[in-house]
């Protein structure tokens, strides 16, 4: 569906400085899968998405979307994909159903067909009762669902979602995830960016981890955790400022120890055992817990930084 080889993007910033947002990435997204770009702000995810959406010219390398070249077939590509941008671009002067209706018309769909789809999509994103409401009166989660509905008006083969749940409360995020699951079941290829590891774990079959414009790892969430982390993680919190001092004393208890400002992470196959050893050495953490490894740990391992900073 999407193939990128050596894909690059650079901008000239207002200061005249050249910013290399994407520095040569290879990506292949297959039909029907949910593919994620995971990375912190500024990793190059959104720049990549804008190139894939055929609204941002490629600076280097090759990019094919549905087998087409965005440089020459932009309108054709855009007619077959759906785009749910990071910032809502809904028309606040129009009501909910008009936003969908006029957007459907941009694709050259006949009026009657657009009206039918508007009804279906409002149903799908659970906004039927809000059809005549003003966009400004919707909650953040409703606006997001409306934007998703709008991106589906042309029955896209690929749906691009740039940070689909950023800024939403937990409940609203789950509603959005549920709708995206349903789309995936219907066979829509999903490509999303996120800086939430739980979102990536929930939604993505495969993902790439991006950092500073490059791909630093690739695989399914489970594969990535297996390759780059341990089965369990013991988290220890000591008093403020003690973490650096305590770290050398527990270093041999785990495969790897990460020192964060507010806690120590001990990467080990058996977290309970590690904590027992910590106590046996006379160290007394304020708090301790054992959890399974997540993509956050993968990211920390690969980049030395946490995702949401």
């Amino acid at each position: 569906m999407i193939q990128a080889v050596g894909l690059r993007k650079s901008f000239t910033a207002r200061s005249g400085e050249v910013v290399e947002a994407v520095r040569g990435i290879d990506v292949e997204v297959r039909r029907g899968e949910a593919f994620g770009f995971l990375g912190p702000n500024g990793a190059g995810k959104s720049s990549t998405m804008r190139m894939v959406a055929a609204v941002s010219p490629v600076s280097g390398g090759t990019l094919r979307i549905l087998g087409l070249d965005p440089a020459t077939d932009g309108p054709e590509i855009r007619s077959r994909i759906g785009v749910c941008p990071q910032e809502d671009t809904l028309d606040t002067e129009l009501n909910v159903s008009d936003n969908l209706y006029v957007y459907g018309r941009y694709f050259g769909l006949p009026r009657a067909e657009v009206r039918r789809r508007v009804g279906e999509l409002l149903e799908f994103v659970q906004l039927t009762e809000k059809a005549k409401a003003k966009v400004d009166d919707l909650s953040g989660g409703m606006k997001r669902r409306l934007t998703i509905a709008r991106s589906l008006i042309n029955r896209p083969e690929v749906l691009l979602l740039d940070e689909p749940t950023t800024g939403l409360d937990p409940q609203a995020r789950h509603v959005v995830w549920d709708r995206l699951f349903r789309l995936k079941q219907q066979g829509v290829t999903l490509v999303l960016t996120t800086h939430y590891m739980d979102e990536a774990e929930q939604l993505c079959d495969r993902l790439v981890v991006m950092d500073k414009g490059l791909i630093v790892a690739e695989g399914s969430p489970a594969e990535l955790i297996r390759s780059y982390s341990t089965r369990e993680v013991a988290e220890l919190r000591f008093n403020v400022g003690e973490h650096e001092r305590v770290a050398p004393k527990v270093e041999d208890l785990a495969e790897r120890v990460e020192v964060l400002p507010d806690r120590l992470l001990l990467y080990t196959a058996d977290g309970e055992e590690a904590i027992a050893q910590v106590h046996a050495r006379g160290l007394d953490p304020v708090m301790s817990l054992v959890r399974r490894s997540t993509l956050e740990d993968v990211f920390l391992r690969l980049t030395g930084r946490t995702l949401v900073d």
Partner: peptide, 15 residues
């Protein structure tokens, strides 16, 4: 800048 409607338009086949 405000409702960013142009960005929505150019994400469709319109240029």
């Amino acid at each position: 800048k405000w409702n960013r409607a142009y960005y929505g338009m150019i994400a469709s086949p319109l240029g």
